[in-house]
């Protein structure tokens, strides 16, 4: 109070009253603005492509399933909601005999997608996945498998991987050097 530079109490009062008037006029003006509310079931805002919701298993450009049943996603999953059984085709290609995601437990963290070496498992923006019965939230491979490549249209794991399968033998993969004939290296 002894500070001479301090404004008078009248100034204080006027200052706070004008500040309040500013606030009240702002809210009053808002009264006549169009609400910015988006009404959900009628209007569904298109979500960004990389939003994390319902999970799918995609296919490679050749139309074959991508998942090689490597268990990396199920190991990465913090809530352990992915389970599967791996098996092999005659040509040596691995795939999941069954593949199950329990969406009742999934927290949509996206770690499975990050872990996947084949771009097989992907999260989609489709978040409307609520069920009355929690048991119907368990999705089997048939429910998860889609017929497109999701966000990654081109990648095909077996075209790059150096393992022998129907997609190519030794030295026939993309960016793979010709197989070395060990016999020529003999002294």
């Amino acid at each position: 109070m002894s500070d001479p530079k301090q404004t008078s109490w009248l100034g204080d009062i006027l200052g706070s009253v004008s500040a309040m008037a500013g606030g009240f006029s702002t809210t009053f003006k808002h009264l006549f603005r169009k609400p910015i509310t988006e009404e959900y079931p009628e209007y569904k805002r298109p979500l960004p492509e990389r939003s994390r919701a319902r999970i799918i298993l995609t296919r490679d450009p050749d139309g074959d399933e991508r998942c090689v049943a490597c268990y990396l996603c199920s190991a990465a999953c913090p809530v352990s909601c992915i389970s599967m059984q791996s098996t092999e085709r005659e040509d040596g290609r691995r795939y999941a005999a069954w593949f199950r995601i329990n969406f009742g437990r999934c927290i949509y963290c996206g770690l499975c997608e990050e872990a996947c070496p084949t771009s097989a498992i992907q999260l989609t923006p489709d978040f409307e996945n609520c069920r009355r019965d929690i048991l119907t939230m368990v999705f089997e491979k048939e429910d998860l498998l889609v017929d497109h490549g999701g966000k990654d249209k081109t990648y095909n794991f077996y075209r790059y991987a150096g393992v022998v399968s129907g997609k190519g033998g030794k030295g026939e993969h993309v960016k793979e050097k010709k197989a070395v004939d060990v016999k020529t290296n003999l002294p």
Binding site: F28, H30, L31, R33, K34, P35, I36, T37, E39
Partner: peptide, 13 residues
Amino acid sequence: KLLGRLQVRLGPN
């Protein structure tokens, strides 16, 4: 309702 409009929302509808 009014509070909604004051905050540029719709309020219960």
